[in-house]
Computed example of a mutant assay.
Amino acid sequence: MYLWLFPIVSLLLFLWFYLRDPRRTINGFLFNIFICSAGILSIIAAFESDQPFLKILAIIPIILIAVMLTIGVYALVIVLLLNARILIRKEGRKFSNYLTLLLGIGILLFIILTIIQPIRYLPKEIQILYPGVMFIFLYFLVNLFSFLSAYFLYQFNKSRYNQDFIIVLGSGLIRNQVPPLLANRINKAIEFYHKQEAVTSPPIIILSGGKGSDENLSEAEAMQAYAVDKGIPIEYTIKEDQSTNTYENMLFSKKIMDDLRGSSYNSIFSTNNFHLFRAGMYARLAGLSSHGIGAKTALYYWPNAMIREYIAVVVMNKKRHGIVIGIVLGLSLMGVLIQYLFK
Rank of each mutant, 00 (worst) to 15 (best):
311 I>P: 05
337 L>G: 00
112 I>G: 02
106 G>I: 07
310 Y>N: 06
81 L>G: 00
311 I>H: 01
6 F>G: 02
260 L>V: 09
267 S>Y: 01
101 L>W: 06
77 V>N: 02
159 S>L: 11
309 E>K: 02
266 N>E: 12
85 R>V: 15
311 I>L: 13
131 P>G: 04
90 K>M: 12
257 M>W: 02
56 I>T: 12
51 Q>N: 15
50 D>F: 11
176 N>F: 03
143 N>Q: 07
35 I>G: 00
19 L>A: 05
247 Y>W: 12
251 L>S: 10
22 P>E: 07
249 N>K: 11
217 L>T: 08
215 E>A: 03
72 G>E: 15
323 I>D: 06
207 L>N: 03
331 L>P: 06
157 N>V: 14
287 G>N: 11
7 P>A: 02
125 E>K: 13
245 N>Q: 09
214 D>M: 02
183 A>W: 08
139 Y>P: 09
200 T>V: 10
330 G>K: 09
42 S>E: 02
115 I>C: 02
91 E>P: 00
104 G>L: 08
283 A>L: 01
12 L>E: 08
325 I>P: 06
341 L>Q: 13
264 S>Y: 13
102 L>C: 10
186 I>Q: 12
98 Y>P: 02
136 I>G: 03
330 G>C: 07
215 E>T: 05
34 F>L: 03
147 F>R: 04
104 G>Q: 07
138 L>W: 08
236 Y>M: 09
187 N>R: 11
318 K>F: 14
272 N>L: 08
151 Y>Q: 12
195 K>P: 01
166 I>P: 04
14 F>E: 08
95 F>T: 05
323 I>F: 12
312 A>N: 04
103 L>P: 03
220 A>N: 09
168 V>I: 09
35 I>E: 10
66 A>L: 15
323 I>G: 01
324 V>Y: 11
7 P>N: 06
57 L>H: 08
300 Y>F: 15
157 N>W: 05
199 V>M: 05
188 K>R: 15
275 H>N: 06
289 S>G: 15
329 L>K: 04
280 G>T: 06
102 L>A: 14
295 A>E: 03
298 A>G: 11
189 A>S: 12
20 R>P: 00
235 E>V: 04
133 V>Q: 02
1 M>W: 11
232 I>Y: 05
142 V>Y: 09
120 R>Q: 13
146 S>P: 06
283 A>W: 09
49 S>F: 15
264 S>Q: 14
51 Q>V: 15
203 P>R: 10
313 V>M: 07
153 L>S: 00
299 L>R: 14
2 Y>C: 01
177 Q>N: 13
329 L>Y: 04
171 S>T: 13
168 V>A: 04
334 M>S: 10
139 Y>V: 06
239 K>G: 01
261 R>Y: 13
335 G>L: 06
211 K>L: 11
69 L>I: 06
233 P>L: 01
219 E>C: 03
288 L>Y: 04
82 L>Y: 10
323 I>R: 08
17 F>A: 07
126 I>K: 01
85 R>I: 15
